[in-house]
Amino acid sequence: MTRAPGRLRLAAGQAVSVPGDLATNVATAVSLVRDAADQGARVVVLPELFLTGYDEAAWTHDASLDLDDAALEPLSEVARSRSVVVVVGAAVRRAVDPATGSGRHASTLSVLVVDPEGEVTAPYDKQHLSGPERDFFTPGDHGATIVVDGWELALGVCYDGCFPEHALAATAGGAAAYLVPAAYYVGAEHRRDVYYAARALDNGIYVAFAGLTGTCGTGSFSGGTAVYDPEGRPVRRLGLEPGVVVADLDADEVARVQREHPMATDRRDSLGPRTRVVLAG
């Protein structure tokens, strides 16, 4: 069973992202973080590729950002001044290993984490790339969890959360919450609302889903940012409007749900062979 200490106030936010305009997107992210911090949030989750834009024109290797880009400093400053952890999506340019050539011209669809000291890292790269993302990005090769005030917070990105085993692996590793920056096109609202509620219910953990909203390049996105409780109910949810939702994560609620509905631990590693019986025809 997962156990985390006490409560953690977490926010998930959404807004419009401008393809290739890092400075504008950073400024928007800073505004969302300030709003969340004003409401007492310790962790703020923002959408997939928010800083660089969910648009193919912003996905080239040259358009991807470096983690030491000076344009990220306002985000570092707000994390330092408000003592918050920021989790946000971006296309990241990865270094080439001169010995092996590994990573040559590689970019990743990543989760950036800005800690309360203002340090920027990219501990997780999206493992399940979707559609044209595969033409631009190298998939991640490992899962990742960050620890904030004793809370184990697993990281995923959008399509990752459509695969039950992704959140299951995080829960097995001790995660009490699953943070998912995402971008869902208008028209996919039903799937969006089912997947992440299901990941919470499957595992008895909180899920924070931060969805891109509005128009970004050629795409129109449906928002739907929400925090789901360990039984899969939305604690707070947005529609299309920019803003943040704030929720208190409760370790006792995680423990209660996992005790009463232990689906994650009752899961069998194998269901054995399948028999097939033809009764007619």
Results as ranks from 00 to 15, higher is better:
residue 2 T to V: 15
residue 4 A to Q: 15
residue 7 R to P: 02
residue 7 R to G: 03
residue 10 L to F: 02
residue 11 A to T: 06
residue 13 G to A: 10
residue 19 P to F: 10
residue 21 D to N: 15
residue 22 L to R: 14
residue 23 A to S: 15
residue 24 T to P: 06
residue 29 A to H: 08
residue 32 L to K: 11
residue 33 V to P: 10
residue 35 D to R: 15
residue 36 A to P: 07
residue 38 D to A: 12
residue 38 D to F: 01
residue 40 G to M: 02
residue 43 V to R: 07
residue 43 V to T: 10
residue 44 V to N: 10
residue 45 V to G: 03
residue 51 L to N: 13
residue 53 G to Q: 14
residue 54 Y to D: 14
residue 55 D to A: 15
residue 55 D to C: 07
residue 56 E to D: 13
residue 58 A to D: 12
residue 65 L to Q: 11
residue 65 L to A: 07
residue 66 D to N: 15
residue 68 D to I: 05
residue 74 P to M: 12
residue 74 P to C: 11
residue 77 E to L: 13
residue 77 E to C: 05
residue 79 A to Q: 13
residue 79 A to C: 13
residue 80 R to D: 08
residue 80 R to C: 05
residue 82 R to Y: 05
residue 86 V to A: 09
residue 87 V to I: 10
residue 88 V to N: 05
residue 89 G to L: 04
residue 93 R to H: 09
residue 94 R to Q: 04
residue 96 V to A: 04
residue 99 A to C: 00
residue 106 A to Q: 10
residue 110 S to Q: 03
residue 113 V to L: 04
residue 114 V to Q: 10
residue 115 D to F: 04
residue 117 E to Y: 03
residue 117 E to T: 13
residue 118 G to R: 12
residue 122 A to M: 00
residue 122 A to P: 04
residue 124 Y to C: 00
residue 129 L to W: 04
residue 130 S to Q: 11
residue 131 G to F: 07
residue 135 D to V: 00
residue 135 D to N: 09
residue 138 T to V: 06
residue 140 G to K: 06
residue 147 V to N: 13
residue 147 V to W: 10
residue 147 V to L: 09
residue 150 G to Y: 10
residue 151 W to S: 07
residue 151 W to V: 04
residue 155 L to N: 02
residue 158 C to S: 04
residue 158 C to F: 00
residue 160 D to N: 11
residue 161 G to K: 06
residue 163 F to G: 00
residue 165 E to G: 03
residue 167 A to M: 12
residue 170 A to E: 11
residue 171 T to Q: 15
residue 175 A to W: 06
residue 176 A to K: 05
residue 177 A to V: 05
residue 177 A to Y: 05
residue 178 Y to P: 09
residue 180 V to Q: 07
residue 181 P to Q: 08
residue 188 A to S: 07
residue 192 R to M: 14
residue 194 V to C: 05
residue 194 V to R: 14
residue 196 Y to H: 12
residue 200 A to L: 08
residue 200 A to Q: 08
residue 201 L to A: 15
residue 202 D to V: 04
residue 204 G to N: 12
residue 211 G to D: 01
residue 212 L to P: 05
residue 215 T to L: 06
residue 215 T to P: 08
residue 217 G to N: 10
residue 218 T to D: 14
residue 218 T to S: 15
residue 228 Y to D: 05
residue 230 P to Y: 11
residue 230 P to D: 11
residue 231 E to Y: 06
residue 232 G to K: 13
residue 232 G to F: 06
residue 232 G to D: 12
residue 233 R to N: 12
residue 233 R to S: 08
residue 237 R to Y: 00
residue 240 L to H: 13
residue 240 L to N: 12
residue 244 V to C: 09
residue 247 A to F: 00
residue 251 A to I: 03
residue 253 E to P: 03
residue 255 A to V: 14
residue 256 R to W: 13
residue 258 Q to V: 05
residue 258 Q to R: 15
residue 259 R to Q: 15
residue 262 P to A: 13
residue 263 M to S: 10
residue 263 M to E: 07
residue 264 A to W: 13
residue 265 T to C: 01
residue 266 D to G: 01
residue 268 R to C: 01
residue 273 P to G: 05
residue 274 R to F: 01
residue 274 R to P: 01
residue 275 T to E: 14
residue 276 R to L: 09
residue 276 R to D: 06
residue 278 V to E: 14
residue 279 L to D: 14
residue 280 A to M: 08
